[in-house]
Computed example of a mutant assay.
Amino acid sequence: MQEKNLNYLKDQVKYTGFGDGLENALRENMQSGKTAFELQHQTKFGNDQAEATLHFRKSSETDKYFFNKYDLAVKPEGEKDALKQTFHIGFDNNITLKEGYNLLSGRSVQKEMSKLVETSDAGSKRLEPKGEKYTAWLKMDLTDKDQNDNFKIRQYHQNYGFDLKATLDKYPIKELGNAEDKTRLIESLQKGNRQAVTFVIDGKEEKRFIEASPQFKAINQYDSAMKRTGFSSSQPKSQKHAEQQTATEKISAPTSKKSEKQSKESDTTRKPARARKNRRSVT
C-alpha cells in the first residue's frame, strides 16, 4: 500500500465532510488489496439522521485507490422514509456531506462549477468537468428522478438574476449591520444552511431563520418554531411580491460544443478531486 495514496484519500474524505473517523478502516481495506470496498458513515444534523456509504475502487492499471462516489440517505425527523441520492467525486463540482444534506432537505447550494467537456480515456468517451469555471446555485427537484434513480438537480446560473447580497439588503436583518456577521451569514446561506438571524421590526427584535431561494429570487423565512412566515405589514410591498412571484425558467449550465452528448460511462473510471491540505473543513 502506498502511504502517499492513503494520505491523499484521508484528506479527500475529510474535506468532503466525513471527518477523520474513517482513517483506520480506510487503511485496513487498502492493505487488503481488494478490488473495491465501501465505508459507512452515520451522523445527525439537528434531529435528522444521515447515513452515507463511501465507495472506493482500485485502479486497473496501478495499485492506487480512488474515492469515486458516496450514497447519502437522509431521514428527516418524524418521517418514515429516507431521501436518497448518489454524489460522484471527480475533478471538480464535488458536493460535500453537509451540502448533500441541505440539497436533500430542499434547500439551494451555491457552487463554483466547471463546464463539461468530452474526454477520452482508454478508448471510452465521457463528459468531465474540466472546462471554464462559473458560479451557479443548485437545487434538487425532489419530484423528478433520472434514469439512475437520482433526483434531478436544477442549476440557476448567475445570469438568472438572483443576487443574494442585494436580496438580503432588502430585509431588516440586524446581522447585516456588522461586516463580519454579514460575511458569515452570506457564506452560510451559500452552503445551503438555514441560518438564524434577528429581524428588527418597528424597533423590536424577532428571531427568525432564513434560507436562500434563488429560484424565486428571495429568501424563505421561518419563525422560532420553524414554521414558514412572511413579511410584516411594516415591510415594503415590493418585498412581499418577491416572496410570491413564480420563476419557472430553468437555467442550464453552459457547456462546450463537445459536451452536448450525454455520457453513459461508469463512475468508476473517474479520478478523484485534488485534496487541498490548506482548505478549511466544511461544516
Rank of each mutant, 00 (worst) to 15 (best):
R57E: 09
D81C: 02
A82R: 05
T62K: 02
F45W: 10
D81L: 13
K84D: 08
G46P: 08
S60P: 15
V74P: 15
A50K: 05
A73W: 09
F37E: 08
A73G: 10
D81F: 12
A36F: 08
E77C: 11
P76E: 01
L72M: 09
G78S: 04
A36C: 07
Q49W: 07
N5D: 03
V74R: 06
S32Y: 01
L72Y: 06
L39D: 01
L22D: 10
N24S: 15
L22N: 03
G78P: 12
Y65L: 05
L83Y: 10
F45N: 09
K80F: 03
K14T: 06
G33L: 09
D71K: 02
V13L: 05
K84Q: 15
T62N: 05
D81E: 15
R27F: 02
K10L: 02
T62F: 05
G78M: 07
R27L: 11
K75E: 03
M30L: 06
A36E: 13
K14R: 12
K69C: 14
T53Y: 00
Q12M: 02
E79D: 09
F45C: 09
K69W: 12
N24Y: 14
N7Y: 01
L54N: 11
N24I: 12
E51R: 12
F45T: 06
T43D: 13
K75P: 04
E79W: 07
N7V: 02
Q40F: 12
D11T: 02
G78I: 10
N7Q: 08
P76A: 01
G21C: 06
A50Y: 08
K58F: 11
K58D: 09
E28W: 05
D48K: 13
S60H: 04
K84M: 14
Q42R: 08
Y70K: 08
